[in-house]
Write a protein that binds this DNA or RNA. Structure first.
Lengths: 207, 207
DNA sequence: ATAATTATCGCACTAAGTGTAATTTTACAA
DNA sequence: TTGTAAAATTACACTTAGTGCGATAATTAT
């Protein structure tokens, strides 16, 4: 009888589901507290208690407090790389990245983006790690581009494309913040990429 | 009589001189320990004891352990900006930055660079802060470029130049590390800037 | 000399993060 | 069903970074 009661649509076993739920609960309560009182004034004990776990268990899921935020941003890099790898062969590398970034970012609600953007800027340590993640993303984009356009002659050009792409993303992010999220990120991204491409005439890089 | 004994060539008062000496002593003993046992395995107590000060006094000079390293890198940004502001009006913006970076880096002994480079890569937190300093430098370079080429029409182009410059610096840094400091930084910088300019045809950006 | 700064220090405290070992929960097979 | 291996959760003690505060000693100015 227990057997029939036991998880009917348990997506991948009870254990993993619980784990996913716990991690999600920690993340959500953590972010909620961060938004309430700021990252620095939120202690791990508070997060643990609010999430109904012990202090020690927190470190079973995250290596540090900052990683709550970073865990949200992770996964985006992979989605981006995948999208780049599937890019149309007729497009320019930078257009491929642009389209990938736009499509990935479009899936994120603007409200969430504003919150994340605010949190990222409040704590210096998180801001520092964000920069690191930018560098990582640049590397991932570069690798994806190399797979899609495997001509070794163009390798340097592709690295520059990756650099400029991340640069455009940062420009768009700054605009988004400056305008308090009035305009959607996708729009700002297109603008930023366009201005970069225009200034640099990157269209020529192809073929 | 005391009056005549008192500081003859005290460069700016006894107090300031002592302070400078103490700060220098902390920095040097700190770096020495970092190189011996790594940043993470060096505690503040060890640094303080080796430098002959109390743990508390350390925080009178530095806000954190990492800042020992960062304090060395500080000042470079300013030198860079100054050099850019004094650039020849006939040169291309990116060439101005290139020359500035090369001249500033040429003043740093290769041995020191290898040490610093190694230290920066060992500790994650320091690495993160290094990325932040890159972003700051990009901003400073951008501001300097705008002063030198004040045409508002070109502002975006200058921001991209600043981005690409920092990118070239990072590329050169990676090469420097990969080659274990076999070739001088100045040479690698010239190469990196050249390849960036070549790929992107940045010469056209002028005029 | 005396008074005002300023550097140095000690102490107690908070909070992040780690090591270890015990305990509970889940998975799986006899 | 039950025993057992593996994984999740917890408690406890510990190290270390960093802060607040107040006392003390050294420098400087009057």
């Amino acid at each position: 009888m227990r057997k029939s009661e036991r998880g009917v649509e348990t997506g991948g076993g009870l254990r993993e589901r619980k784990k996913r739920e716990t991690k999600k609960r920690i993340t959500e309560t953590g972010i909620a507290l961060f938004l309430q009182k700021g990252i620095d004034r939120t202690t791990l004990d508070e997060i643990a208690e609010a999430a109904g776990i012990s202090r020690r268990t927190f470190f079973y899921y995250f290596a540090s407090k900052d990683e709550i935020l970073l865990s949200l941003q992770s996964g985006i890099g992979e989605m981006l790389s995948d999208a780049v790898r599937k890019a149309s062969p007729t497009s320019t590398p930078i257009d491929a990245v642009r389209d990938a970034v736009v499509s990935v970012c479009s899936a994120i609600p603007t409200a969430d983006m504003i919150e994340m953007d605010w949190l990222m800027r409040t704590s210096p340590s998180v801001q520092a790690r964000k920069q690191v993640s930018y560098v990582q993303q640049e590397g991932e984009i570069f690798e994806a581009l190399k797979e899609r356009w495997p001509d070794p002659e163009r390798s340097t050009a592709l690295r520059i494309v990756a650099m400029l792409s991340v640069g455009a993303m940062r420009i768009a992010g700054d605009m988004f913040n400056r305008e308090q999220g009035t305009r959607p990120m996708a729009e700002l991204l297109v603008e930023a990429f366009d201005s970069v491409v225009r200034e640099v005439r990157l269209g020529d890089t192809r073929a």
